[in-house]
Structure formats: C-alpha cells, structure tokens
Design a protein around this nucleic acid. Structure first.
Length: 903
RNA sequence: GCGGGCGUGUUGAAAUUGGUAGACAAGCCAGACUUAGGAUCUGGUGCCUACGGCGUAUGGGUUCGAGUCCCUUCGCCCGCACCA
C-alpha cells in the first residue's frame, strides 16, 4: 500500500467527527487540562498558512496531554462581531450576519482539513443571541455593582445605597439625582470623557484600538473629542491587575507590556492656590517629584482641563481662545510628533504651597488632560519637557541638585544631593521625595497618591454589528433591562450606516424600545464578546447561567493559552478585568483566567519577483538583471517552484504577460525573492488547503512546527516541505513494503531500544517546553536510525507512532489500526522512558585546582569503555601539564550525553 | 527617548545552558535506478593559500575552555511614547 494521505486524512477526520473522539466531559476522577486558542475573527480572506500555527501547537499539546492521562478541554469558536463585516454591509447592503456566517463556514472547512482535536460540540459564536445574552448579563452585573475601595472588590450597588442612606445622602434626592450619584460609582457607567473619535468609522474607539493616532482597524485618523459614553471602570482594578500578574506563567516581555500599560507611578497630589483677578481657586496637581517643589517656576494646565476657563484672565481671554482652537484641530499624532513647543499664558498666578512664591499659570498641549489631574507644577531644571517650555517662553530655571549643570539641558535623574530646597537641602533625592510628601501631608497641603496610566475602557460604539446594550431610557435616566428579558436582540435595519443626523445605525430600527421607552442606540465593542468566552466553553449550552458552578469548579481556568502578542494591552487586560469582576461576585472560582500564555510568532510571506526590462515585454532571470534597466514585479508564489518560474503558467497568469519573452540562466528563469508580510497584494499568500491537497495535513502540521521556534516570527517557504513529507513516507515504509505489512513481533535489539528511548526522553522534555521544532528533528533522527537498523518491530514502532500521533494524527491512526488496534490512538498511553538505555557510560569528571573544583568533563554515552578510559588518561595528562591541577573525583551523571575532549 | 528581544553556513535552524559549532532539514554537486520525475536510494557540501589554519555582527575582557557570561561599537525586530 502506498501512503495515500488524501484517503487516510478524510477517513480519520470522518471517524473523529462520528465518534466524538474529542468530546470533553467533566470527570472528577481524572485531572483536567484546559488548552485554549485565541478564537479567530472570521475574515473574508479565509485562512492563510500563518493562521493555524498557534492552533497546531495547541493541538499538539492537547493531544500530548491526552496521552499523558489528562481530561483535556480544547474548544474553538468565533469572535464574530466586528468592523469588517459591517463595513462590507455598508458598501453592499449585505447583512453582516450573512457575511459572517459564510466566512465561518469557510473557516470551519479549512480548520477541519488540518485535523484539529477540538470539541466542536462546545463551539461558541459571539454574535449568537444565546451567547451574547451572557455578555449583556455581565454588563448588567457591572451596571449594578460598584468598586468598594476599602475591600478593593466589586460589590452590589445596594450596599452603596445603604451606605448613602445611613449617611443621610440618599433620601430626598430626585430619581435623576440618585441615578447621577450612582453613575459615579457603577463599574459600568456612563460618563463624559475625552474619547478617541474616528470620523471615518463614525465611532469612538478604546485606547488599545488606536495606534499613533490612527485606528488599528482601517488606519483612519482619530481625534480627541469630549463625549458621553458608556465606560467600564477598569482603572479600579489597576492594582490587582498589576499584583496578580506575579503568579502568571507569561513571558516577561508581555508582562512588561501590561505593566507599562497600567503604568503605576507613586507620587503625591498637592494643592496650589491660584488667584485669578478677585477669585481664588484650589488647583490640585500630581507629581512624582515632590522633592522638586522648591524649583517650581510656573504651572501648566492641559488645554482640555476644566480649570482653563476659570483661570483665564480677561486680558488673556482672546489669546487663550485662539490657542485652544488651534490645539483642538490637531490630532493626537500631530501633537505628539510636533516637536515645536506651544503654549499660552492664562493671566493668573499660583502660589507655591511650600515657598509662598507666586508663579504664572500657563496652558500647553504637552500636558495631558487624561492623566493625573490635568494640571502640573513645572520644574524646568529637572524635567526635560518643562525645560523645553521654559526655554521657549523665557521662564526661570532654578537648579535644585548640587553640582548639576542646567545651562544646556535639564537634569532628570533621580540622583544627587538637594540644594536651594529649604528643609530638604542636604538630603539625597531618594530621602527627599518621602520627606517632602510627609511634610505636605502634615501641613494639609496634599497627600501621597498612586496614579495609573490605565484609563477606564470606553464601552460604546456607534455601530450596528455588536451586542446591544440592555439599557433603556426612562425620562432620560438610564435603566437596566430586566434580567429575565435578556437577550436584547439586534433589531433589523434597512441600512447599516449612521443616520443623516449622525445617530448610530440602531436609530434606524423601528420600535427600538423596551416597556415603551427608547433603548440605548450604541452597541458594545469587540472586546465585550471575547472577554469571557473561555468561561462559556466550560458550559456552552447552559441557559441558566454563563457557566454553572460545577463546570467552573471542575475546569477552573485556562491552563495553556496560545495566541498573538497583539492582544497584550487589549483583550488580555479586559479578560483579566472581566474575570476578576465575576470572581468578586462569586461567579467564578479563579482570580486569573489564563495561567500560562504563549505568543506564537507571525509567519511572513516569501515573495518572488520577476524583472522586466523597462519598455519591453522581456523578462530576465535574476542573475542577469543588473545588465539591464529593469522593474521588479511581484509574481504569484504558486507558479514558482524553488525560485524557478513556471513560464507557461506565468504567461497564463495575467493577460499582460501573455506574450512574455524570457532571458534565462542555464535554461531556467530564476526569480528574486524577499521576506514580506503575507498578503494578497504581494502575491505571496499560501493557502493551507493547497498544502493539504498536495502534501496532506500531517505534513503541513509537521512542517509548521519544524519551521522554527514557536514564539519566533519566520518566513513561510513551501520548498522546504519536501523534507518532512519524505519523512512521513519513510515512516510509512517502516510498516509497509508495497502491499506487505512487514511489522513483526520480534524482540527489539539494544540498539533499537536505545534509539527509541532516547526519542521518548527527547519528545517528553521538548514537548513540555514547547520546543516543537527540535522534537520534529528528534523524530527524524530516530527514523533515520531505525531505517538504518532495518527495524520493523512492533515493540519499537508502536510507541514511535503513539508519540508521533500528536503531530501527525491521521497517518498514525491508520498505522495504529494496521497494528490491530480497534480504538483511536487518542486513548493510547504515552510510552514510558526507561533510563537504562541512555545512561550507560555517562560520566562527569570534576577537575580541581588546589582543591577547588574548576571544571567538569562529561563523556558521551556513545563512547566505548576503552574510549572513556583513554579520555581519562588524557585528562590526567592535562592535569599534570597544568601546574597544580589534579583530578579529584569522578561522578556519573545519568542522562547526560555531552562528549568533550580536552587537549 | 524609555522598555524588551535578537545578530550562527546559500536558506530555515540546532548546540544537552560555559564543554567536539553548524544536529535535523532545504538548496546545491556527484552517482545509482529509471521511458520519465517536483519519485526513490547512496555519497559530498562553513571558509582558506588544505597533512595545517581560520571561523558564531564588531572590538576588548573573564576562563584551562566562550555562540553562550561581562563591557564597546554597529545593525535589526517588537512594544510604549510629552504619563509630570
């Protein structure tokens, strides 16, 4: 029999589906293991060969854990709400649901071909009302909760009302006043804030959806705008999000990204009294450098600060208004990039609370309204931004650290001895900071404060294709929809774009009301549906709750999560927040959702080029291109093999090239190449379906892992795939010679056992460490050895394919069945490693100088007894040769295979 | 600017964590079998002025020993970016 991967793969994919081989059922007697992929947004372009990389890795690990006796939960679903389907709907009128479902069908068929061991009975789709019911439910819980700073926990809003009642702050308020009061405390709340407004998309965006002033989706410019929006009080959880990261098994770089994003900084708030004409105001600033207060020479307000209006004097009004108008027009990007220092004097003066000195109050866009209090004390001598401002507007600079030179630049380091600083003079900076804060607190001038960069998440989007809010407005007061009436399903609309008056698309829906009152017209953002999906997989069909207590208690949280690093400051923060909130309310039993996280690298494309002589239809091979003036043209990688162009296919590729002529090297047209992003426009997209057709899913899986370390980005190059394909064919030939099944029950030789057990040790160790590329290499080495030994023994081959089945499940199932097994290889046991075959002759020699161990020498197990003895003699000679060196002791180290010769 | 990471053949990479650098593949060269090959098998393949010598971006250091540790310089990638 030939290795017919097409038949084999179709057969076993059918078998797994029919037998529900990968169905996960809670079993108290068996330890659980939860392996999760970041579920995909089903885009119209379908999967390319880079997308399944992480899925293959997680599938290998899932299959490995099953063989090791774990009850594995390995689900898959779709993050199905999102902008592209909606943009398409606006252009074509096609309902996003139709597009989305078609894309999901395509994704599913592509995924199925790769042979994943998903439990598809647990599939979720975020756009399914039965699913988003629980997204809305969680929102209602957040609406009806507040964050108690004393307990650092979310608690029911009733607790807060009771507290207000006890304090006499509640009774007597109107319904509207009560609503407004609670709104300041709810975890999900409505509030006015500066938001990222994207005019092209017609919606607001969260901070992580904006990069360098452009929307991540679509790349449209984003501007700052003050709007009333639904928000989630993520910032309340800043400290816990930071602290609980310690115990997570994530990479340091990813943890750093989150730490950066949360941006904890310890400092203090200080009150400056500001005199504007006849009125005095208390303006609070935030600083991390309380020690530098003696060097304050001016104050600065953010242009959006509420203080601006109050602190602008009559003479300066015109100038300030002009400045504000100018600042408003700029996008965030222009502000950050414009290195030019701008600002305007407000006309009022502040009093330094420590020195009593009067300093001018300025307004400048270098101060951000969203951080701290939107107002700063400026210390030009020790802050480079204040320094630049002071130099531009000719404001005084007072140095506060002994010996520092501030004639050319500020001295920003937190280092040195204070001077010109009253009671702080003589202290080091490190002593002065707490001393200054202590002084400020004792004199009632302010207080120590920790500030976070993390802002609350803007939660409304002025779009159609998202979860509707379970909120309606009774006389303008937002009210929660009753829990029993969930889900609030998306209404039909005739068009998907905003209304002519700029209202969200839901304003087009007829009778978009609840109990006769209008419903909220915004929808929830993309991260709403993806924040708790891992919980829903535990109990996907439950209609009484997001997840039952028993299912949650069994599966707990995700043991291994694999996905891209692009979610570091979005999804991975929101999910952690969402989980902590549900934890506080007692709905889940773990405070962190994802224990271990691996970020797979990106697979880039390898583009090919042809070179056309300018003004002709003549193409020259890459080696000859320098002789002519040529233009480089991308050519479809699918008509190029090993950089050799299929000239006939090229002529048929595009009408322009129909009459192409070629100038060849050695009778072949060699293409140039480059590594670029995999995309349609570069003609370098490789479709996994094509690989499955030509080589099979087992080869694809093996090759993706063989390509290089999982976390690393690497280019896809189809030409290397022959190597792993050959490997599988050769494995097949260990079992089959033409039509004869040649496996015997003969006893294995020591050499064969050694080869097998070396492999078992390696597969086990490398798989545990997610080093899949070296595992594949180990399989190849073992196969080469077994071929060499002409080994066709069941005792060796059966464990071999059980291990290989985690990579290449289809072909291994087929061979396993040929060995006479009735059950799927999924239920086999991972073979046990016997040490005896790898420790023989392993020795370590420790060599000492004057009694102190200086180096060790380890000898390979492959050495014979004679070789070992000869090497030891060599060592002794080395010891004699080097003065004062002697071999002190000899230690046998099991498992070591190092082979050193010391000259 | 700040933070994290990286630099090894023609290419993807490996190196048991300080111990024979280039495993395993791809490509290339030669040979075998073939009507044929994008099939199969065998051998070779870091570089050089080749019985020797040199080689892990660069220059230095620690060490009996450095791809691995420390410092210098150069280059690349990722994240954040006026966060007071």
């Amino acid at each position: 029999m030939e290795y017919n991967f097409k038949e084999i793969e179709a057969k076993w994919q059918r078998y797994w589906a029919q037998n529900h081989t990968f169905k996960a059922v809670e079993k108290e007697s068996q330890p659980k293991y939860y392996v999760l992929d970041m579920f995909p947004y089903p885009s119209g372009a379908g999967l390319h060969v880079g997308h399944p990389l992480g899925y293959i890795a997680s599938d290998i690990y899932s299959r490995y854990k099953r063989l090791c006796g774990y009850n594995v939960l390995h689900p898959m679903g779709y993050d199905a709400f999102g902008l592209p389907a909606e943009q398409y709907a606006i252009q074509t009128g096609q309902h996003p649901e139709v597009t989305t479902n078609a894309n999901i069908t395509r994704y599913r068929s592509q995924l199925d071909r790769i042979g994943f061991s998903y439990d598809w009975d647990r599939e979720v789709r975020t756009c399914d009302p039965a699913y988003y019911k629980w997204t809305q439910w969680a929102f209602l819980k957040m609406f009806n909760s507040w964050f108690n700073p004393e307990t650092q926990k979310a608690e029911p809003i009733e607790n807060l009302i009771a507290k207000f009642k006890a304090e006499g702050k509640w009774d007597g308020l109107s319904e509207k006043e009560q609503s407004d009061l609670l709104m300041q405390y709810r975890i999900a709340y409505q509030g006015e804030t500066a938001v990222n407004w994207c005019p092209a998309l017609g919606t607001v965006l969260a901070n992580d959806e904006v990069k360098e002033g452009y929307s991540v989706r679509g790349g449209f410019p984003v501007e700052q705008k003050k709007m009333t929006q639904w928000q989630l009080r993520v910032s309340a959880y800043a400290e816990r999000l930071l602290a609980d990261m310690e115990e997570l098994d994530w990479t340091d770089s990813l943890k750093d990204m989150q730490r950066n994003w949360i941006g904890r900084s310890k400092g203090c708030e200080m009150v400056f009294k500001v005199q504007n004409e006849d009125k005095e105001y208390d303006v609070t600033i935030f600083t991390t450098r309380a020690d530098t207060v003696f060097g304050v020479t001016f104050m600065v307000l953010a242009p959006e600060s509420d203080w601006v209006e109050k602190l602008t004097s009559r003479e300066q009004k015109a100038a300030v208004e002009e400045y504000l108008a100018m600042a408003k027009k700029k996008t965030e990007r222009e502000r950050a990039q414009g290195k030019k220092v701008t600002g305007v004097f407000s006309g009022s003066y502040a009093t330094n609370p420590l020195t009593g000195e009067k300093v001018p109050v300025w307004i400048s866009e270098y101060v951000l309204s969203g951080y701290g209090t939107g107002a700063i004390m400026a210390v030009p001598a020790h802050d480079s931004r204040d320094y630049a401002f002071a130099k531009t507007f000719n404001l005084p600079i007072i140095p506060l650290i002994e010996g520092c030179d501030v004639s050319e630049q500020s001295f920003d380091a937190k280092d040195g001895i204070m001077c010109n600083s009253g009671f702080l003079t003589g202290m080091s900076v490190k002593e002065a900071i707490p001393a200054a804060i202590k002084y400020v607190e004792e004199h009632g001038l302010g207080r120590g404060k920790v500030n976070y960069r993390l802002r609350d998440a803007i939660f409304s989007r002025q779009r159609y294709w998202g979860e509707p809010f379970p909120i309606y407005y009774k006389d303008g007061i937002p009210m929660p929809v009753d829990e029993k009436d969930l889900p609030v399903t998306l209404p039909e609309v005739d068009q998907f774009k905003p209304t002519e008056t700029g209202e969200p698309p839901l304003a087009r829906a007829k009778d978009w009301t609840y109990k006769g009152y209008p419903l909220e017209k915004s929808t929830m953002p993309g991260f709403a549906g993806s924040s708790a999906y891992y919980l829903r997989y535990m109990d996907p069909k439950n209609s009484d709750g997001l997840v039952s207590a028993s299912a949650d208690a069994y599966w707990r949280n995700v043991d291994l999560y694999i996905g891209g690093t692009e979610h570091a400051t979005g999804h991975l923060i929101y999910s952690r927040f969402w989980n902590k909130f549900l934890y506080d309310l007692g709905y889940v039993c773990e405070k962190e959702p994802f224990k271990k996280l691996i970020n797979q690298g990106m697979i880039q494309g390898r583009s090919n080029f042809v070179y056309r002589i300018i003004g002709t239809n003549r193409f020259v091979s890459v080696g000859l291109k320098d002789k002519y003036e040529t233009t480089e043209i991308h050519v479809d990688v699918n008509i190029v093999h090993n950089d050799r162009l299929d000239m006939e296919a090229f002529r048929n590729w595009m009408p322009d090239f129909k009459n192409a002529e070629f100038e060849l090297e050695n009778g072949e047209y060699i293409c140039g190449w480059a590594i670029e992003k995999m995309s349609k426009s570069m003609f370098n997209v490789v479709n996994p379906d094509m690989i499955c057709d030509n080589f099979g899913a087992d080869t694809l899986r093996l090759y993706e892992m063989f390509l290089g370390p999982l976390e690393q980005s690497k280019p896809w190059d189809t030409k290397g795939i022959d190597g792993v394909n050959r490997f599988l064919k050769r494995v097949w030939r260990l079992f089959w010679d033409k039509d004869n099944f040649i496996v015997t029950d003969e006893k294995a030789s020591p050499a064969e056992l050694k080869s097998l057990h070396k492999l078992i040790a390696k597969v086990q160790e490398d798989t545990e460490n997610f080093s899949f590329n070296t595992t594949v290499a180990a399989f190849m080495i073992a196969m080469n050895e077994l071929s060499e030994l002409d080994c066709h023994k069941r005792e060796i081959l059966e464990p071999f394919i059980i291990m290989l089945s985690i990579y290449c499940p289809h072909v291994c199932e087929e061979l396993y069945q040929a060995l006479g097994h009735q059950e799927s290889i999924t239920y086999a046991k991972f073979p046990e490693y016997v040490e005896a075959y790898t420790v023989e002759n392993n020795c370590t020699y420790a060599v000492s100088f004057n009694g102190k161990t200086r180096f060790t020498v380890e000898l390979a197990k492959s050495m014979s007894k004679e070789e070992v003895e000869a090497t030891v003699r060599g060592m002794e000679q080395t010891a004699k040769y080097l003065e004062g060196v002697s071999i002190q002791k000899v230690i046998v180290v099991p498992g070591k295979i190092v082979n050193i010769v010391v000259k």
